[in-house]
Design a protein around this nucleic acid. Structure first.
Lengths: 200, 200
DNA sequence: GTCTATAACTTGATAGAC
DNA sequence: GTCTATCAAGTTATAGAC
């Protein structure tokens, strides 16, 4: 993608002036997340992006190309997130847990969309999810130095991510939506356990 | 399960003499789990079950009826599982964690199949998953008496379930497939933390 | 109960006008 | 760059024979 002074900083993740290409990608990810893979047809994506099917296919020549676009976007967002977690003042683990629940960020949307593709038997999507998980696990392991605890932390993170992504609305009292104070409690628990295990 | 050789088990979940109806339901759940919702077409299900499409539609008049069949099967299996967990000598929490990873049991298959449907925007499937989660959470809460810890345990269980269900094969070294000894470590960790928190 | 044939519709993709 | 046909293949469901 040629970036000239006239065609400004074309960061492919979240351009200031959303290009048609990006709108299409947004619409595809959104449909995947909200209504599943089967609903994310070319027709539906085109309509949601405000273009015709022909217009969509000019930018992405096939559905495969559309999928590749989402996966590439995910890879970029994960790379950024990894840096953000590493640089977090609150500590990597707290930052990871707090950012696990899907809140509608670009990364969340890309992750959910990729999960849907992975479950539709797309092995490239599965690989992308694994790569992201590996990166996060590595950070946690470096931070705690404790493999068992690190796994437990990753599983909690996964549980938060999947739960918020897959069972979004109207939960029952028992597993009612986790409030931010619930997350605080969770982080405290993990912090305490981490201190106890490293202290000994 | 009161099943005598003379009176073979005729419950609707997994009859010894698999009826056509059950074979169809098995095939549908299997296809949903292995290849996603989009691949679980009537054609594919019929072929996998060894009947024609017409034959399938004699037993389940529509795709909706097929879905209802899977959800009913799940409800029955969850009810049984709840009883088994409550009666477990090792304690409910250890039993729950150990049974979280999908190992191919009938319950696992029904859960995975229902997850796929839930992600295809089927709200009935979502409700079924929530009901199951509520039941398990209730058991854990009764066992530990500690809401924060119970949530952490449920999240670990969710993480195990989703991970094993959605990223099944060929994992990388970092998050390599959890061995049963890894699970042992995890259960030990949880047991210790539970003891510490209740002891104080 | 199970099959084949077929109707009605959706989906991904191509061709070509503007 | 974006649009409107248009097509071939696939999908759910019905009808009726055996």
């Amino acid at each position: 993608m040629p970036a000239t002074p006239e065609n400004p900083p074309t960061d492919s993740v979240a351009p200031a002036a959303s290009s048609t290409r990006d709108r299409i990608l947004d619409a595809f990810a959104e449909l995947l997340g909200e209504h599943g893979e089967r609903a994310a047809t070319l027709d539906a994506v085109a309509a949601a992006a405000g273009v015709s099917k022909g217009g969509l296919l000019y930018h992405f020549g096939s559905k495969e190309a559309l999928i590749a676009g989402v996966l590439q976007r995910l890879a970029e967002l994960v790379a950024r997130d990894v840096e953000a977690i590493r640089a977090s003042p609150a500590g990597p683990v707290a930052q990871l847990i707090r950012s696990s629940m899907a809140t509608g960020s670009a990364l969340d949307k890309a992750l959910v969309a990729t999960s849907r593709l992975a479950q539709a038997s797309n092995s490239t999507a599965r690989d992308a999810l694994r790569a992201a998980n590996d990166a996060w696990y590595q950070i946690v392991l470096e931070s705690t130095g404790d493999p068992v605890l690190s796994r437990a932390i990753m599983l909690i993170s996964d549980g938060l991510a999947y739960g918020s992504a897959f069972l979004p609305e109207s939960m029952t009292p028992e597993t009612a939506e986790l409030t931010s104070s619930d997350i605080d409690d969770l982080v405290d628990l993990i912090t305490e356990v981490t201190a106890q295990r490293s202290g000994h």
